[in-house]
């Protein structure tokens, strides 16, 4: 019996081996290397020079780090709730789509397939303050739209608006979760005279809270690392200074520019570890909150 179990364990490890080797070689290894690099001055052209914790000290006093971190947290605080709400709305509509559900699922998901660079180029046109389609739409309702892409105040809201383009991926997950909420709970709620809003609040939301929690964590981590769209729109291939001031300077953009424009690999590594800590802290807070607000099937409530 023991022998068979050990044999199975070995087989298990053997199957895991490619992943373990890959993880050690391509994730853990580079992470440790970057941790060491963060204590050096390294421009990729000369050998690294050990400088202790100087890079971390500099990061703590670097105005641009503070600006980039603020921009990133601000974007995340707007993006994640907006993504959840829009995706939930889309999923609710999809649920009612009846026979055409398959078609609409595909339509809702299709934008997710757009390459980020193409998305950025397209939204530069759509969001243009002078003759963009979004302001034209607002104009029909009597609003004068802002300069989304050139006014520092409106750049981050504009990027949040653009990020909703990919809400389809989250909506599909919510749709799957919605279909798993037992119909008898709604029936019971209706018999008790619950309004649609109360049904949503007391049946639907607890029923899909696990999925909402998952998407909130994943979207938070992704938005704390936002890069491609903002870099393409506001910094571009020439590596120029963004013409909109620092409004679109997100943390990873600052990190990337320190690494590949200023050739400060050591400092950029320290910034990367800083972001790792920020993400870990934010995720820890989310885990803590989840104990209170997230319900799983089979759990006592």
């Amino acid at each position: 019996m023991v022998t068979a179990s050990r044999r199975e364990a070995r087989a298990g490890w053997l199957f895991l081996l490619p992943w373990v080797v890959g993880f050690l070689a391509f994730t853990a290894g580079p992470m440790l290397f970057s941790l060491w690099l963060s204590t050096t001055r390294y421009d990729m052209l000369k050998p690294p020079e050990h400088i202790g914790l100087d890079n971390y000290r500099e990061a703590l006093t670097d105005d641009r780090v503070a600006t980039a971190l603020w921009n990133t947290l601000f974007f995340t605080a707007l993006h994640v709730p907006a993504q959840v709400v829009v995706a939930l709305g889309l999923a609710a509509l999809l649920r009612r789509a009846g026979r055409a559900a398959g078609f609409f699922r595909t339509v809702v998901y299709l934008p997710v397939m757009t390459p980020p660079v193409a998305l950025a180029a397209m939204f530069l046109l759509l969001l243009n303050g002078q003759n963009g389609a979004i302001n034209a739409l607002l104009g029909w309702f009597g609003f004068t739209g802002p300069n989304w892409t050139t006014d520092p105040v409106w750049i981050k809201p504009g990027l949040v608006l653009m990020s909703l383009w990919t809400a389809g991926s989250t909506a599909v997950l919510y749709l799957a979760a919605l279909t798993r909420v037992p119909a008898e709970r709604y029936e019971a709620a209706r018999l008790d005279g619950a309004s649609p809003w109360r049904q949503f609040w007391h049946v639907t939301l607890p029923g899909i809270s696990g999925t909402i929690y998952f998407t909130a964590v994943v979207n938070t981590i992704a938005s704390l690392q936002v890069f491609t769209e903002a870099y393409t729109m506001f910094f571009g291939a020439r590596g120029k200074e963004s013409a909109e001031g620092d409004a679109a300077l997100f943390y990873v953009i600052h990190l990337f520019r320190e690494a590949f424009e200023s050739l400060r690999m050591g400092y950029a590594s320290a910034l990367a570890w800083g972001l790792f800590v920020v993400i870990a802290v934010v995720t820890a807070v989310q885990v803590r909150l989840s104990r209170r607000y997230v319900h799983y099937e089979g759990e006592r409530s």
């Binding site: 243009n128 050139t150 006014d151 013409a243």
Partner: peptide, 11 residues
């Protein structure tokens, strides 16, 4: 001003 000027130029 810059925001309007650049938005116009971007068109």
């Amino acid at each position: 001003g810059w925001a309007s000027f650049k938005a116009f130029r971007d068109t």
